[in-house]
Design a protein around this nucleic acid. Structure first.
Lengths: 252, 252
DNA sequence: CTCCCGAGTTAACGAGGTTTACTGAATCCC
DNA sequence: GGGATTCAGTAAACCTCGTTAACTCGGGAG
């Protein structure tokens, strides 16, 4: 009744090895250095062998991106462990953790958060393939990261803290946010966070979007060094962004 | 006294052709499709011939990025022509124009605004090369875009409008902003915009940073489709970001 | 009329992704 | 247990790519 056969065990092991080495190459030398042949070389096998595990280089990179999301998730979760139970403290901790991670792993950040999502490049219908990996796993890892964010934002919404001063979402937007409210509510359910549906208000969604957009913008600009001039005081600038966000969201 | 010889004329023409075709490939099929051989093929020449014009593929891509900045600049300038003379209107117009352009040219956007800047990948000292192009031109095109933004922000600062309600820059930041104030002041000079030095206040710089970070974040998230859920109402969301920025900056 | 500069060519190298046909060992099933 | 089967891995090959080196050959300069 050994559900996991020896073959599957070995397979899983080398699969892990492949991604470990791929990851190392990505970190050390950048995305374009993540080469099937280079990975195979470091593993002591030949390049075509990798096709037993992945459909193509592109496929491998996509899987790598999922791994990265997973690792970022666990890192953020660890970060939050050492933080007091104030909801806002946790939100701040996650934001700071995200920034720290992005600055420490620029290449991973670029791969996961700034890669144009197949903008018309691929032939349509190139999505489905009956290929060597569990399709059930595919959505899991990517959403793991969302789970972290949700788990930190959820409590805020549940307590309705966000509504204390309504962030005044523009009327023209309110209607458009309805879809997102539904999406977010089901997301909470999916991730096992109990959430009264009325807590997912338009204001809450609007707040969430603002947080993400500003956090992302600030971090991406730092990672890509695309500020209009050198910002030597990036740390303090980031802190003031957080503070501002907290204030505007009616928190604390 | 014909300063521009026939040879130079031809050279400039094909150089333009090269970039035209490179650009087309970038737009149609993405960055990795911009291949020396592909460009040469479309031009009816052979790949090594391109080395008469560029040091390497990387060099060509860098030059392409500058071209793109230039085109974006002229597009933004044209956008602003049809806008009334209210400073705020112009700022909004530039922001909307930037977003429109980014959504219409995702690959160019990715190349120029979301490419990790050689993060330790290159060997140090690989910067200078005595190569086939005018070095005086190199800084010009990239700054052209900055010029557009400055030309629209400048008037605001000059009139001191931004100070009406001081955006309350945190004390810890004020000191760190001094460098940026100097940078910005010299940038105004460089771009031929007269600007009283006292107008480049810490508040003004802080405001500028916020505008850029939020504009960039919102646009990049849209381009890369990295919002946590589908935002069908992206247009209205963007408008509300602008409105919020205007309000927070004490404008109008 | 020469000489030469320089745009463009051909040939070649090494590296990359991917496919095809194969080997040989582990597994499965009777 | 033993043959059939599955499957990780190999070898060879194909095509594309960036880049270099050695050349051709025409227009401009003296």
């Amino acid at each position: 009744m050994n559900e996991v056969t020896r073959r599957e065990q070995l397979r899983a092991a080398t699969e892990l090895d492949i991604r470990r080495h791929a990851r190392e190459l990505l970190v050390r030398e950048g995305q374009e250095a993540v080469t099937l042949r280079a990975i195979a070389r470091e593993l002591g096998i030949t390049a075509p062998a990798l096709y037993r595990y992945y459909d193509s280089r592109e496929d491998l990179l996509a899987r790598l991106a999922e791994d990265i999301c997973g690792d970022l998730s666990t890192e953020l979760n660890e970060t939050m462990r050492d933080v007091d139970d104030e909801h806002l403290s946790k939100v701040f901790a996650v934001c700071r953790g995200f920034r720290r991670w992005a600055l420490a792993h620029p290449r991973e950040f670029a791969l996961v958060f700034a890669t144009p999502a197949n903008t018309g490049g691929g032939r349509p219908g190139a999505e489905q393939r009956d290929s060597p990996h569990d399709p059930a796993e595919s959505t899991t890892r990517g959403d793991e990261l969302g789970s972290v964010f949700l788990s930190v934002v959820g409590p805020l919404m549940a307590e309705g803290v966000t509504n204390s001063p309504p962030p005044s979402v523009p009327d023209e937007l309110r209607e458009g946010l309805a879809d997102s409210q539904r999406d977010l509510a089901t997301a909470f359910n999916t991730h096992g966070i109990e959430m009264p549906p009325e807590a997912v208000s338009a204001e809450a969604v609007y707040m969430l979007l603002r947080w993400w957009a500003r956090l992302y913008g600030q971090v991406a600009l730092e990672v890509f060094e695309k500020f209009p001039f050198d910002v030597s005081h990036a740390d303090r600038l980031f802190e003031s962004v957080l503070e501002e966000l907290g204030r505007e969201s009616g928190l604390r």
